[in-house]
Design a protein around this nucleic acid. Structure first.
Length: 617
RNA sequence: CGGGAUGUAGCGCAGCUUGGUAGCGCACUUCGUUCGGGACGAAGGGGCCGCAGGUUCGAAUCCUGUCAUCCCGACCA
């Protein structure tokens, strides 16, 4: 068997690949039609990625260099916290997921786990995340508090059958993720680790050269208590962030709590029934009768489907100017009913087609006291509504609401009258820009968009209890491990960096994650003087530890400049007509600053700047 | 899955309304000129017009079905 010998640093083999002529560089002059946002367009155009199927991408050599640099930073920072790198299986047995209670939720309905049956008819899932595997390993390996705390992490591909893959690497069905899991003897130690991770994450994003904001977040399907997301701020971000001007509060809209704008009192004497023909929306009502949306009580009907098959109709009341926050509603339903009915699988609008007699449902004219009778005869739905209400609805003193009969509303209604029973007030609304901050009503929330690149959770004992991962504590008693989990979307982070750092001409990579730090461009590859000088500088730079690429193609100078800008290499050294006089030009991609001079002088100052830039923001 | 759109050469597109045997720009190959901001000229190569079925003497074009991709919503690193 021939054995390949690795000599030197192991990076030697890069030498030959650092020439553009040997880099398999295929750039496109036109934007690919399939790409919508700048980062996706640029990564395709500049030859970093190619789509293989929807949400599935090949990382071409340049992209792989970027991903390895991002990974290296992540690895360094994780190692610095004392975390241990591992590699866990991607193919995972269904039983493990059945034990944690997530198999059904992740495979049925809108579940996102790719799953399959092997030739022995065993069910397997392709890992969308690794809590189950890691917890079962922890159960086998961790016996005593003396082994704690311990944190394990890995960097590898994850698989999620996304309902709608989008925007290139932003929402792929296969993507690279760093996931870490920590195990503790108690909640205090978990909280301590959470803080350490939060700091490590801030360093990671800073070192990658991206602006990221830590926000309070919903824990979603992962479960657990405290959770924070790290958002790269960008217009194309999928999430809405609400933050206070003084920076003391920032949260994902899914999670954000705030003080709603006060309602304007409805000034009417007594209550009456109003004819509202065809006025089925809040806008219609307001324009026809001069009401304000905040004076109207809005009712939303949904169906919550649970693991054990229950299809529970839900009636939610909100103030008319507010939007239902489905994440908050799901959390309420999950926490109060999952023990009884199994996990919440889906939450969807109630469709008339599910009713035995749709004509009895006065859609658009419904009040909070809609009779359960409208559900009668349905073969799928439970016969009674679960009635919930947001604070904004319960706190209305006098309001307008549907009369539960077509083309009629009631005006001047109060809770407690006409058989209207106010449900317990809950937070079910979306916080909005301009809402007051809970702990400081004088501050108003500002909205911005973000790309979620990291998420850290204090899981608590959810998985350790489910999978029976126990340790012996100081008192000699057995108890479930306390767990945290911490994710970074490595491939998403790389694209988010592009989203944050690009211009008309192309990508502008932050130095720490650029595929190369500098490109030496030979303006005229037919001029031996230029070639000789460029080759010499290229070797010198490489020897001096600069991550350098040589554009030795026999293209015209303009083409090479355009490509260098499209690729986003932070620095460009042009060896051109000044070469005969020993002069070269140094150009910084981000600022466009150009300096001409003797190589020794320019490269000395370059080295200084690079040293700074390698540290990130 | 619901709503919207698109599939014609590697990429971007025209052709389809009014059926007649496929075209433009970029990219690619060869030669010459040019050579610091995506050069010019000449000559080339490359397309089961997404797939299947139907209508027709004849289908990229009309009809039906299907698949794929993208955008808007639920999912999330």
């Amino acid at each position: 068997m021939p054995i390949r010998t690795v000599i030197g640093s192991g990076l030697d083999w890069f030498q030959d690949l650092m020439r553009v002529s040997a880099l398999l560089l295929v750039t496109l002059r036109d934007d690919p039609a399939e790409a919508e946002i700048p980062s996706h367009r640029l990564l395709l155009r500049a030859g970093y990625i190619r789509r293989v199927a929807s949400g599935i991408y090949a990382y071409l050599p340049l992209m792989w260099r970027v991903l390895r640099k991002v990974s290296a930073i992540v690895r360094e920072e994780m190692d610095a916290t004392g975390a241990l790198e591992t590699l866990l299986p991607q193919l995972q047995p269904a039983e493990l997921w059945e034990k944690s209670g997530r198999w059904a939720g992740y495979t049925e309905g809108e579940g996102i786990m790719f799953h399959l049956i092997d030739r022995q008819e065993r069910e397997l899932g392709l890992g969308p995340t690794h809590e189950e595997v890691i917890t079962s390993l922890a159960a086998e390996l961790l016996r005593s508090y003396r082994q704690l705390p311990v944190t394990l992490y890995q960097i590898q591909s994850k698989f999620r059958d996304e309902i709608r893959p989008r925007f290139g690497l932003m929402r792929g069905r296969e993507f690279i993720m760093k996931d870490a899991y920590s195990f503790h003897a108690g909640p205090e130690d978990l909280a301590r680790e959470f803080g350490i991770m939060e700091e490590a994450y801030s360093r990671i994003f800073r070192r990658c050269g991206v602006q990221a904001l830590a926000v309070e977040a919903d824990s979603g399907a992962i479960g657990g208590s405290a959770s924070k997301e790290f958002m790269v701020t960008a217009a194309a971000g999928e999430d809405l962030i609400l933050s206070s001007p003084d920076g003391s509060y920032a949260a994902n809209q899914e999670r954000a709590q705030a003080l709603p704008q006060p309602a304007q009192p409805l000034e009417v004497e007594g209550s009456s029934v109003l004819k509202t023909p065809g006025q089925a929306t809040i806008d219609d009502l307001c324009s026809a009768h001069g009401f304000q949306p905040c004076q109207i009580l809005k009712v939303i009907l949904l169906v919550a489907r649970f693991e054990q098959g229950r299809a529970q109709p839900v009636l939610v009341s909100l103030r008319g100017d507010q939007q239902l926050n489905e994440v908050k509603l799901s959390n309420v339903l999950q926490s109060s009913h999952a023990p009884e009915w199994g996990a919440l699988l889906s939450l969807q609008p109630l469709l008339a087609t599910e009713l035995a007699d749709a004509s009895r449902m006065p859609l658009g004219f419904i009040g909070p006291d809609l009779e359960d009778g409208v559900l009668a005869g349905s073969s799928t739905l439970e016969p009674e509504f679960l009635r919930l209400a947001d604070h904004t609805a319960v706190e209305l003193e006098t309001f307008v609401c549907g009369a539960n009969s077509n083309d009629q509303h009631r005006v001047g209604v109060r809770w407690g009258q006409q058989g209207l029973v106010a449900p317990e007030p809950l937070d079910l609304r979306c916080a909005l820009e301009g809402d007051g901050l809970t702990h400081d009503p004088s501050q108003k929330l500002c909205a911005s968009r973000g790309i979620e690149v990291g998420h850290i959770f204090q899981l608590g004992r959810k998985y350790s209890q489910a999978l029976d991962a126990r340790f012996t504590n100081e008192n000699g008693r057995d108890e479930p491990l306390w767990m945290g989990c911490y994710g970074i979307g490595v491939s998403r982070l790389a694209q988010a960096a592009v989203e944050q750092h690009h211009d008309e001409a192309g990508i502008v990579w932050p130095v720490p994650i650029a595929p190369f730090e500098l490109v030496v461009v030979i303006a005229n590859a037919k001029d031996p003087v230029q070639v000789d000088l460029a080759e010499r500088l290229y070797r010198e730079l490489s020897a001096a530890g600069v991550d350098v690429l040589l554009d030795d193609r026999s293209e015209r100078a303009g083409v090479k400049f355009k490509d260098a800008e499209l690729l986003g290499i932070p620095w460009r050294l042009v060896v051109g007509r000044g070469a005969a006089d020993g002069l070269v030009e140094l150009v910084e991609r981000a600022s466009g600053d150009k300096r001409e001079g003797a190589p020794a002088v320019l490269l000395a100052s370059l080295q200084e700047q690079l040293q700074q830039q390698r540290l990130g923001l």
